[in-house]
Computed example of a mutant assay.
Amino acid sequence: MALPHTLVVLEDGSDAGAVLLDTASAVGSVLWVDSHALEKVGREELGRSEHDVYLEFSDWVAYCVEEAQDAL
Score class of each variant (00 low, 15 high):
41 V>H: 00
20 L>S: 08
9 V>W: 00
20 L>I: 10
65 V>A: 14
51 H>T: 04
3 L>M: 09
34 D>N: 14
55 L>K: 10
65 V>F: 12
30 V>Y: 08
30 V>D: 09
37 A>C: 01
49 S>C: 05
66 E>W: 13
30 V>N: 10
64 C>L: 11
60 W>A: 03
37 A>W: 01
44 E>L: 06
8 V>A: 04
26 A>Q: 12
25 S>N: 10
17 G>M: 08
70 D>S: 03
47 G>T: 04
39 E>M: 03
23 T>I: 06
4 P>V: 09
8 V>F: 03
70 D>A: 04
58 S>R: 13
45 E>R: 14
40 K>C: 04
23 T>A: 11
51 H>V: 03
51 H>G: 02
21 L>H: 12
61 V>F: 05
50 E>K: 03
65 V>I: 15
16 A>C: 07
46 L>K: 08
63 Y>A: 14
55 L>S: 12
65 V>D: 13
49 S>I: 03
17 G>C: 10
30 V>C: 11
24 A>M: 09
48 R>K: 12
68 A>H: 01
72 L>C: 11
45 E>W: 06
56 E>I: 02
7 L>W: 02
13 G>E: 15
19 V>I: 14
66 E>I: 07
39 E>I: 02
30 V>F: 10
54 Y>G: 02
20 L>C: 11
69 Q>K: 14
28 G>F: 04
60 W>L: 03
31 L>Y: 02
3 L>T: 05
34 D>Q: 15
48 R>A: 15
5 H>S: 04
44 E>R: 11
24 A>E: 15
27 V>Q: 13
14 S>M: 12
6 T>W: 00
72 L>H: 07
48 R>V: 09
52 D>N: 10
16 A>P: 00
6 T>F: 00
5 H>Q: 03
55 L>P: 06
52 D>R: 15
47 G>I: 02
37 A>F: 01
14 S>L: 14
19 V>P: 04
61 V>N: 02
38 L>D: 05
50 E>P: 02
19 V>M: 09
21 L>M: 11
43 R>Q: 07
56 E>P: 00
56 E>G: 01
55 L>Y: 09
30 V>T: 14
68 A>V: 00
50 E>F: 02
62 A>S: 15
58 S>M: 07
65 V>Q: 14
9 V>L: 03
50 E>V: 02
4 P>W: 06
34 D>H: 12
43 R>Y: 05
30 V>R: 09
48 R>Y: 10
40 K>P: 01
33 V>F: 04
39 E>V: 08
57 F>M: 04
34 D>A: 15
2 A>M: 08
67 E>K: 15
66 E>M: 11
35 S>N: 11
9 V>C: 05
16 A>L: 14
55 L>A: 12
33 V>S: 06
34 D>F: 06
40 K>N: 08
28 G>E: 06
17 G>Y: 14
21 L>S: 11
19 V>T: 15
53 V>K: 13
51 H>I: 05
1 M>Q: 01
38 L>P: 04
40 K>M: 05
31 L>Q: 00
53 V>I: 15
19 V>K: 07
36 H>T: 07
43 R>W: 03
61 V>Q: 10
46 L>P: 08
47 G>L: 14
25 S>T: 07
52 D>A: 13
29 S>N: 14
25 S>R: 08
48 R>F: 08
53 V>H: 10
10 L>N: 01
41 V>K: 00
10 L>K: 00
67 E>G: 07
17 G>R: 06
2 A>F: 05
41 V>L: 00
51 H>L: 09
66 E>N: 13
72 L>I: 10
60 W>S: 03
